[in-house]
Structures are given as structure tokens and as C-alpha cells.
Design a protein around this nucleic acid. Structure first.
Lengths: 238, 238
DNA sequence: CTATGAGTTGACGATGCCGTCAAGTTCTGA
DNA sequence: TCAGAACTTGACGGCATCGTCAACTCATAG
């Protein structure tokens, strides 16, 4: 099977390219808690808010003023707080779909024949998501903490681990790295994207290529520190 | 000549190890502008402020409240603003000495016999400075803009360029990288330091080692993007 | 010793953001 | 159609930070 071509699209424009407006079927149907459905107008407002937040996060980062989001959505700040009591709630709601995309990406990557190409495919795709959306770039480093997000993260992690093992078995990925070391990719590219989004929006690819060469088995030199253990890669429970 | 051993000290403690309290001979003697010397008490306050700022920047980053710095120095906020009208002024004043250290480091590195070792020595030293001081870690990515800082930066750049050329001539550093690509090291490690200073204060060394392996000529794969040109690496004039 | 101006003080107004709530509006089920 | 619950509104109080300024203090030159 040939590598999927998806992550080749030009997604390093500064303008976040109107992506994946969240249109989930409204409030999460937690099996354990039968929350009554939202009233129709409330539901509409919720979607307006998510769309507004998605746009503003993408353009200005996760720290935009809550009131600005409400204004952009065309509702009052009271409504915003009604629907999403904390900023975190809003962030989680906006970015779950992106996590889903990452999981999908990892599974696609497993379908790539050559293990190294698969890994590269996955990382490029992930970084493209980061480069396309300032908000997601921050999310990717800070991490999300909701149970739903954690579940998705674990799913993704499983796929990536497989991706890693495969590439190590093939002898192309150096043997002394762990999935935890992928944090360096996310973190590093994240900063480069921050710094160069305006000036040189494609430069992160160069950073990625260099770092990736450091992950190759060929010519690897011993590493000075043990990897981060058992995924303390991300913040404690909500 | 054997590699100097300086950057081996354990400077990755979270507590910034009381380093290099600024004790410069008071206000900068600009040759063009014969500013009258500060009154003795004012001079003392200036030093108290620099010391306080140095500590607080190191512990809490560059965004600490100005009033907190003044309080820690034992003076009123009015005095702080008197001495340093803007936050930038204060930051520049606090961190010039660190820039000097970086220049020094680069020159030391040139004294190392093996070109690659010299490069590694320089980068490790720089990153140790970043890891030891949250404020400097931010400065290293944002950059300073005062004329004095720019001059120092250019001096350092000259030394590093020589370091680079030497290593490329020796064939250990890959031929398709530029000094501008060192930004990836600073930026990347900067983020890793941010994320792991509490949890795993030495982990950045692993990140550095991986990235450094990517800079080796041996087993280099072609890079997808041209390097950043002529040093737009840093922000516009003050 | 004293006059003078450099330096200090701390209260103050301005700004921006957060999150709440009582009063008003709108949807929905009967 | 209508009652009542769900939802919205926007003004408000609270908080933190910034930078200023008139009144005061103090170092220094003469």
C-alpha cells in the first residue's frame, strides 16, 4: 500500500484555513449521566460559541478574552459562562475533534508500507495541524485533561507505540528512543511555529527534518539521559 | 588543548543557583551622551533593583509584576519606574552579562581541539544557561533589542560562525545547515525546559543530544526548506 | 551648615479581565 | 394557548496590573 497523501496539503498559511468547524451532535451523551438535551436555541448558541472560539483560538491563541469570544459568537458573556463554565471546558470542547484527527492520522500511518515513512507521515501530519492553528499548537504542548480527551490520547498512543515498534524492528528508528521522546518533536516544533509563523511559515519543516534525522538509527550516538517514564508527558487529572 | 570543563557544572536545578548578580559599574557610559552619574543612594537602589529583578525573573519568568520586583528590592514602584522606565529596559539591564557569557562561551569553544566537540561544548553551555534561569530562557528565544545587546549578539555570531565553518570543514557537521539553524536548538530546548523544569530538570539534555545527532554529517538526509536568511532570527530594532 | 535639585514615596486613576446574578425573554410540553 | 422551566442578558463588583504625579526626603556642592 502506498503512503496516503493527506498531510501534503498546504496547511502552513497563517490564516487557519477554516478547518473542521465543530458540529458534533451537541452535548456529550455521557452514558452514566442522562443530561437532558439542550433547548433548541441553547443548542444553536452552543454551536455559535464553539465556532467563534475555534476561530479565535486559531488566530490569537488560547488566552483570548472570554468576552471577545462571546461577542464574536453574537451572544452575551453570561451565555458563554452558562454553556462553558470554565475556559478549559471550552477548549476541550473545541479541540476534541482535532484529537480524533490525530488518532486517525496514527492509524493511517500504520497503513504505510515502510515503517519509517509511516512515522514521518504521522509526525508531519501532526505538525501541520500545529502549524495551521495557534490554539491547537498550544493544546498540543499543554495537553487536554478531560476524560474524553484522555481516552483519545490513549488510543492514539497505542497506535503510535505500534508505529514506533515497527520502525525499531525494521532498524530504521534508533533503538534507544521511546514514544515519550516524541514530546521533543511536538514541543520543539511548537516553539518554532510560534516564532516563525509570520516570518517563515514553512520553516518548521526544516526543524522537523533535522530532528527526525536525529531519530534515525543510522549514525546514532548514545543518549545522556533516560527517557521520560511511563508518560508523565502530560498534566494531572482534571 | 583539551576541552574546557566549565559547562559540566550541575546547573539544572530548579532553583537558579544565585548566579552572576549584576554588579556592573552603574549606568552605561554612552560615549555620545555624557549622562551625569547617579547619586549614591540612587545607584544603590539601582543595584538592589537589578538584583531583585534578576532573582524574580529567574524564578518566575519575565512577566512578573513590576510592583513585586520593587517590593523585593525594598523600594517603591515609583523608584523602579524612575530607574527603568519600561520593563524592556530592566530586562536588558539584567541580562547583558549573560550575553557576555555566551560570547565568552563561543570563544572558549573555539579553543577546543575537535570542531564537533567545540560545537557541542558551546551548545551545551548555552542550554545550561537556559535551564538555570527561567528569565534567560525566555530572553534566549525572544532576544534582546538594545544596541548593546545587538553588538554582543553580533560578536557571538561571529565566533559561532567560525565554529560552524570549522566543523563543516572537518566534515562532522552537515554541510546544508547554517548558523541560523541553531535557532532550532535554542527554541526547541527552550520549550523542553519550560515543560520539564519541575518534573525532569535534566531531560533537556536528551532532547539536545537527539537534535545534535540530526546536525551530524554522517547519515544526513536532504532538508526540505531553505534556512532562515541573513538572520531575521530576531526582532526588529528597539 | 545650608540650599537646591536629584531622588523617593505611595496613593491614585485607568485599563482589562473575570465570573455572577437579578431581571427579562423564549422555548416547550401539556 | 399558556404556565413554567430553560435560557439569555448586560450591568456590576472584584481583582490585578500598569504607569503617573504632587508632596516629601535626602545627598551633595559650595
Amino acid at each position: 500500500m502506498a503512503p496516503p497523501t493527506e498531510p501534503a496539503q498546504s496547511s502552513e498559511t497563517s490564516e487557519p484555513a477554516q478547518q473542521a468547524q465543530p458540529s458534533e451532535p451537541a452535548q456529550q451523551a455521557q452514558p452514566s449521566e442522562p443530561t437532558r438535551p439542550l433547548r433548541s436555541d441553547a443548542q444553536r448558541n452552543r454551536e455559535l460559541l464553539l465556532a467563534a472560539a475555534c476561530d479565535m483560538f486559531a488566530e490569537q491563541g488560547l488566552d483570548v478574552a472570554m468576552a471577545d469570544i462571546a461577542r464574536r459568537a453574537g451572544v452575551s458573556n453570561g451565555t458563554l459562562y452558562n454553556r462553558f463554565p470554565t475556559r478549559s471546558d471550552l477548549i476541550e470542547a473545541v479541540f476534541v475533534d482535532r484529537l480524533e484527527r490525530m488518532v486517525e492520522l496514527a492509524r493511517h500511518a500504520l497503513a504505510v508500507d515502510d515503517p519509517w515513512d509511516g512515522l514521518e507521515y504521522y509526525l508531519t501530519g501532526t505538525c501541520e495541524l500545529q502549524a495551521a492553528d495557534r490554539g491547537f499548537n498550544e493544546v498540543a504542548t499543554r495537553g487536554l485533561t478531560s476524560p474524553a480527551a484522555r481516552r483519545l490520547r490513549d488510543e492514539g498512543l497505542a497506535a503510535i507505540t505500534e508505529l514506533f515498534d515497527r520502525a525499531q524492528r525494521a532498524g530504521t528508528l534508533r533503538a534507544d528512543v521511546t514514544v515519550a521522546d516524541l514530546a521533543f518533536v511536538v514541543w520543539g516544533i511548537s516553539r518554532t511555529v510560534d516564532m516563525t509563523a509570520k516570518l517563515a511559515p514553512r520553516l518548521w519543516r526544516r526543524h522537523l527534518a533535522l530532528l527526525l534525522d536525529g531519530f534515525r538509527a543510522q549514525g546514532a550516538h548514545p543518549l545522556p539521559e533516560p527517557p521520560l517514564a511511563a508518560e508523565q508527558t502530560h498534566p494531572p487529572a482534571p
